[in-house]
């Protein structure tokens, strides 16, 4: 405690010695979540997101309804030769039907319910063995091709970290124009209570002669689907 007071005293004295500048107007606010103007605006944002994701080495599988997405994901698991996959709880959608569909196609599923997460070491081992990790993002950012994934007890962070491939779903209404809008939409409280990871493409490095290599410590492959609400749900 005294060390802290000493530091603060030091800093205070330093500030007084070189007077602080006049109270500046604070830089422009992040801007509130942008209201989605309608289908046209939504489609534009999704298209931009898809372009930016491709530019950083990710793969956009399309804007699909939940019913279309399920078979597409089962096909993806087959293309990847995935034997085991792990899946977190959804945000706006129920991922249980997807997990069942994958199981039926012969993929061993690890869910993130209370029971499977209770033994943390065992859960981590299963994630480390999984070929594909599946989560739903809270938001996407069109300008940068970014997915904002909020960690939680039933959506562990390691899901987007340990498996070599990731599939991230995002609700079509939650594609934000830019970073400031996404941060504002998540709200400060989320950042205090949960870990948030902004994910922009597959893990990468340029540490050897500034040449880009994908797939260092995190996933080498990143797939995304914008999930369009079913016709009846509009």
């Amino acid at each position: 405690m005294t060390a802290f007071h000493k530091l603060i005293a030091n800093v205070k004295t330093a500030l007084e010695r070189a007077p602080r500048p006049a109270e500046p107007g604070h830089a422009a606010d992040g801007g509130a979540a942008m209201p989605v103007a309608g289908d046209l605006r939504r489609t534009e944002l999704i298209a931009q997101f898809a372009r930016e994701l491709a530019a950083v080495g990710g793969v956009f599988l399309g804007a699909l309804t939940a019913d279309q997405a399920r078979p597409r994901i089962v096909a993806l698991a087959r293309e990847l030769g995935a034997k085991a996959a792990a899946c977190g709880a959804g945000v706006t959608m129920d991922l249980a039907p997807l997990a069942r569909a994958l199981e039926q196609s012969g993929v061993a599923m690890t869910r993130a319910d209370r029971k499977s997460v209770a033994d943390r070491a065992a859960y981590r081992d299963r994630l480390a063995q999984a070929d594909l990790g599946i989560v739903e993002a809270h938001a996407a950012i069109a300008a940068t091709g970014t997915l904002a994934v909020v960690g939680a007890a039933d959506r562990p962070n390691s899901l987007t970290l340990l498996p070599p491939a990731n599939l991230i779903l995002v609700h079509a209404d939650r594609v934000m124009p830019d970073l400031a809008a996404a941060v504002a939409a998540l709200g400060t409280a989320t950042f205090v209570t949960n870990r948030v990871a902004l994910i922009t493409g597959p893990s990468r490095t340029a540490d050897i002669e500034k040449m880009i290599v994908l797939g260092v410590h995190g996933p080498k492959q990143l797939y995304a689907i914008a999930v369009w609400p079913a016709e009846g749900a509009r």
Binding site: V56, Y123, V196, T200, A206
Partner: peptide, 30 residues
Amino acid sequence: EILARTGTGQKLTTYTNFISGPRRKGEADG
């Protein structure tokens, strides 16, 4: 918006992590 553009020539780095505290009750990792 400026850090990665200047530092590495990316729009945004691959991972931006927001960490506020240790693992909470019931969480599998952290």
